[in-house]
């Protein structure tokens, strides 16, 4: 394994932000600069877990909380202090369905594209969402990571077709207009928060 002396392991926390216990509370930094804050948080997570490779799973969990997914660069970065190889980190990250390797929005919109919903024109709703949120089949998540738009085949609620799910909440007999309304509401709510 890589020869990393304890002194160096500790170096992961000698940055400026750790005087304040976590990256989050370091107000001036986090308020102004998301990346800096996130990076400091990763360092803090590693420090809290003693750079212990046995704690890889909690570490990944905490990182996902910060980024809402596990970015490749971050996984590459943490491999070194954890004395693991990127392939090993990636192997664990892909083993658990809980971990997302692609950015995922705070709100996941799942639109049913099963037969019943399809017949009732779910495609129109999908296109309206794609257009409003500037995403598509390939790039499913908005750049501010607020929304992810996915299609699923049959949610088992065909009586309500077309069906749309926002996180856990089910909406039935959705129209493009109604879908956009729901989205706008969330955007407003998030802005106020």
């Amino acid at each position: 394994m890589d020869n990393i002396s304890p002194a160096h392991e500790a170096s992961c926390s000698t940055g400026p932000a750790e005087s304040t216990a976590t990256g989050h509370t370091s107000a001036e930094l986090s308020a102004t600069d998301l990346e800096t804050q996130q990076f400091n948080t990763v360092c803090e997570i590693l420090r809290r877990n003693n750079n212990d490779p046995a704690r890889l799973i909690p570490i990944l969990q905490q990182i996902q909380k910060e980024y809402r997914y596990l970015p490749e660069e971050v996984l590459t970065f943490i491999a070194t202090p954890l004395r693991l190889r990127p392939a090993q980190v990636f192997g664990v990250a892909t083993f658990y369905s809980h971990f997302a390797l692609k950015p995922h929005g705070k709100y996941t919109i799942r639109l049913c594209d099963g037969t019943a919903c399809h017949v009732r024109r779910s495609t129109g709703i999908l296109n309206a969402l794609y257009e409003r949120l500037n995403v598509d089949e390939e790039r499913k998540t908005t750049s501010d990571q607020l929304f992810t738009v996915e299609t699923v085949s049959c949610l088992g609620a065909c009586g309500l077709a077309p069906v749309m799910l926002v996180n856990e909440k089910v909406y039935g007999q959705v129209t493009p207009e109604k879908a956009l309304e729901i989205v706008e509401e969330i955007i407003v709510k998030e802005k106020q928060a």
């Binding site: 170096s11 992961c12 600069d33």
Partner: peptide, 16 residues
């Protein structure tokens, strides 16, 4: 291993 990590943190801090 040579501490580039602390350097990065310190540099970011100073720039800010």
């Amino acid at each position: 291993l040579r501490g580039s990590h602390s350097l990065l943190n310190a540099l970011t801090e100073r720039i800010q």
